[in-house]
Design a protein around this nucleic acid. Structure first.
Length: 259
DNA sequence: ATGGTCGGGTGCCGA
């Protein structure tokens, strides 16, 4: 089972590039972030006609997540528990049925800038809520995948120019510590389990020729429960997508599970 | 549309 995560930065602007990538990626399940669309405006029928089951959790204008699946989907849940006043569409989870079922959580973690400030407070509170949700799911001892745009640069080696990110909400010690608290639950960073070392990025800013200079950061991650990590056979970053026509500023990250 | 660049809710704001 191949599962990917891709922050598409707007479904309307990305439908062509997304379709082209979907047709060649070999994915069974795709987690999308920043669909920037209400559910009723999402091109559900277009994707269903191409063989995908579609579950969305959108809102007008920004944020928004979706799960596409070639496999049967069960038990879809929207919103991250823990704050009934949070109306931002950043979380959807569902069970996909391969040779065995896998719980897939698709997340768009808050950016948090400017930091410090209320946006940064919201990011850290959201990460604490995610930790609680992950701990609750881990009690099932089933394969669970947490795939999405984490808006966290875990280590200096995950940025081409780490010095440029000091003080940014994506690289502040509090954000990195909260990411480590997720890892310390027993989760595995699937890409890092496969590809150690510097020079692997998933985001290049549209500004200042970041792509041409390879000035990237690794902020899109797939974390695995121990039972999912047992099934991991490969992981990768589809870097070439960034050089295509009308690209997102993020590229897809994928994993293969023996499931 | 801006500083540099994209996306959308718009005539800017979020990233």
């Amino acid at each position: 089972m191949r599962i990917a995560t891709f922050n598409i930065n707007g479904i309307k602007a990305r439908i062509s590039a997304l379709t082209e990538w979907l047709e060649g990626c070999g994915c069974d399940v795709v987690c999308l972030q920043e669909i920037k669309s209400e559910d009723r405006a999402f091109p559900r029928a277009y994707l269903e006609d191409r063989g995908w089951r579609v579950e969305t959790h959108g809102q007008k204008g920004f944020n928004g997540v979706a799960v596409l699946s070639r496999l049967a989907i069960e038990d879809v849940a929207r919103d991250l528990p823990g704050d009934g006043t949070d109306d931002q569409a950043r979380w959807i989870e569902a069970t996909v049925i391969g040779r065995r079922p896998v719980r897939v959580c698709c997340l768009y973690l808050p950016n948090g800038n400017p930091a410090p400030g209320p946006r940064f407070d919201y990011k850290l509170a959201w990460m604490a809520r995610m930790r609680a949700r992950a701990a609750a799911l881990l009690a099932s001892e089933e394969p669970i995948v947490f795939a999405g745009d984490y808006n966290v640069i875990p280590q200096a080696e995950d940025a081409a120019r780490p010095e440029a990110w000091v003080g940014d909400a994506l690289f502040r010690p509090e954000s990195r510590a909260a990411f480590r608290r997720l890892i310390h639950l027993g989760l595995t960073d699937a890409f890092r389990a496969t590809e150690p070392g510097p020079g692997h990025y998933t985001f290049w800013d549209y500004q200042a020729g970041a792509w041409e200079r390879n000035n990237g950061i690794r902020i899109d991650h797939v974390l695995l429960s121990p039972q999912a990590a047992d099934l991991l056979t490969g992981a990768g970053i589809d870097k070439a997508v960034r050089g295509g026509d009308k690209p997102s500023d993020h590229v897809p990250v994928w994993i293969d599970l023996d499931a």
